[in-house]
Design a protein around this nucleic acid. Structure first.
Lengths: 218, 218, 218, 218
DNA sequence: AATGAATGAGAATTCATTCAT
DNA sequence: AATGAATGAATTCTCATTCAT
């Protein structure tokens, strides 16, 4: 024990928290493995031993880093939420004012879908997941963030519109985005390059038509 | 006793098939209970004891009528498929030729959503269900029927269009219909009168805009 | 009730206890059905609903006549015990004294095996049955009877031999008889004519050799 | 603690393969427990919880090592088959040529019965088991091996005899061996020293007489 | 007595989680 | 921290037995 502690210091100096680094790596492996499994069989049918095996660890290690199965999904969803928020913040600031809606969609949709299709776990935990049970609350964090960003975007782009109306329209857009992007990604396992571009075009068309209709063509 | 005998005449119709009637009723109770449970917690999290309790029966009875849990879902989906097909056949024949698309949607969408919102189990097994595992095959029967009816409708309404294009458009419409009707029904438990009419309107708007765009306004 | 009783008498005079006759018939049907099922799948794997169906009755009726599954087996074994005892008593009295053992076996073995092969339930409950669990006690009644008859026979045929020795020899003969007669009957479903005669011959040979050796040739 | 460390040296052999050794031990415990339970109540009446308890484990552990109840029986029967084959191969090569049959039996029978009586599970799964249901196929592997060895032995000892005749004789010997060895072992739970020697003698007598008769005394 | 639907304890099996090493 | 064996509650399904009709 004492020897260990002594080692810690000397190693720390050179190797920069090796154990933490290893732990970090293991955490990432577990998250990645879990994400893949969730995508493949869904959260309910995923089992922890399979996840651990996929991550080249033992179940016990999984529980060293996560208190339970749900918490793994939680971290994944939080990351998706955070990363998507970041992406959207990047895209929205440059993309919005005074451009015709079609151009905005051109700049937003495909990057978004590409991003999503590359995020392991996104489909299994959100796009294709049933909205029941333990997951609902987690899914809501993602959904809420998306709704917020989208509402902000729409409010910026179309000021002077009834907020209630905006909210409903955003829900409509979100639902359409979710369902059609799921189609566009369908069966493409974390392979960002192989999304269905025709379906992306349809998605843009539908959203463009709808937004123009709702808020007036600009 | 005497009262019973007197009643016999009036309820003769019921007593005519005593065993079948009871069995039928029990089957229906189980199906109804299962449908509700599926809607509430999803197929995966539903368990047979809970379903039986909800149906005021013992598990054993459930297994008198259904060989396993999946078969209950199967019967429900088959019914949904059949009843929806019947409804669509009724609506489509009268509704289609030469009317503007907006009118067709007026006649189709709300009845459809009302129908769906009144069908216990529809959300849990189809609208909100992930397409993984045991259910996929069953869901496909419903999906295939819907796709078929929709493709026929669109082909009738817009002849001389590329079948491949039609197929993609129908997929788009189906996805939009699924996601927005889920929003319209949201949280309304088998209460057909309380669907969200504003959302229905949005659904009609979106589909109308999209179809006009795809196949030319008429 | 009173009317019933009155009827009872008048009917009894002409029809000889009709309800009892029907009950008797039903009992027999159940016993026969159970015997067949026991032969086919064994006591443990037999289930009461299957037995009832085979007997063209409802399970409930089965329980009108028998308090439980075991009691059906009990009645069958008791019958086998009784009928076999009767048969043996018939065969033994005429067969025994002063004949060479080979002749006695000629008179005993084939009739016995034919009898057994024609008794539904005998194989399932005795010849092929494991000697464990609920059945053991019942099987013992049959076994005890057989041992008694056989011991008597041997004692008559070979007086002046040590009873302990006789007992052991009878156990040996019984075991040989059981196992080889099972082979002779093998796969012949209550079809008394199709027992394996070569195996019967072997059985007689073995028992003859053994008895001659044990008690001296006569 | 200190004691443990000291022990480390002496039990190093055990600790060498910690996981495998423990797993191995657990597997053996389960097999032993299952074997005992099978002997006591038969395969059908044995249940996994009882087996697990007897093995001082939880059911789950049982299923860590065996996919289902049948597979436990399978392993036991395979072991019996293998070990018995090994034993027989050892006994037969030295035992056979030119010796009188009585001497061969002297060398074979008692070791065989001793071996069998020491094998937990042998009675429950084979000697006393009904030949129906899931077990039949497994039992056949054992039976087939035995028949093969025995046929080979008899063919070596008595060449120039009709194979069909040999086959029937071997079946007869096998049946006799099964039934009389069961008697010799009766109630002796894995206690090899307490087999019934008088019954062993009877078994040898019977087989000797029969074989001499069938194939000519030598 | 007859019927067969209903009951629920019990058996096989799975899997999230814990714990000894 | 790492390992994976161990645990046992939970789940699906079966079947002897009961009971309303």
């Amino acid at each position: 024990m004492i020897a260990d502690q002594t080692d810690m210091h000397s190693i720390a100096a050179t190797r920069r928290t090796p154990s933490q680094a290893r732990g970090k790596q293991r955490t990432e492996n577990i998250l990645q493995a879990a994400a893949e499994v969730f995508d493949e069989v869904g959260y309910d049918n995923a089992n922890t031993i399979l996840i651990a095996k996929r991550a080249n660890t033992a179940v016990g290690s999984l529980y060293d880093f996560f208190p339970n199965k749900e918490s793994i999904a939680q971290v994944l969803i939080e990351r998706h939420t955070h990363d998507l928020a970041t992406l959207l913040d990047g895209l929205i600031t440059e993309a919005v004012f005074n451009q015709p809606i079609a151009q905005i969609l051109d700049q937003l949709i495909e990057p978004l879908v590409r991003f999503i299709s590359g995020r392991a776990g996104f489909r299994g935990l959100y796009l294709n997941a049933p909205h029941v049970g333990d997951m609902s609350a987690l899914q809501r964090t993602l959904e809420t963030m998306l709704m917020g960003r989208m509402s902000a975007l729409v409010t910026l782009r179309y000021p002077a519109h009834d907020p209630a109306e905006i909210t409903r329209s955003v829900r409509v857009c979100m639902a359409i985005f979710k369902s059609l992007s799921a189609l566009a990604i369908q069966g493409h396992r974390a392979d960002a390059s192989s999304i269905d571009l025709a379906m992306i075009a349809e998605l843009k068309t539908v959203l463009g038509l709808y937004l123009d209709k709702q808020f007036g063509p600009t």
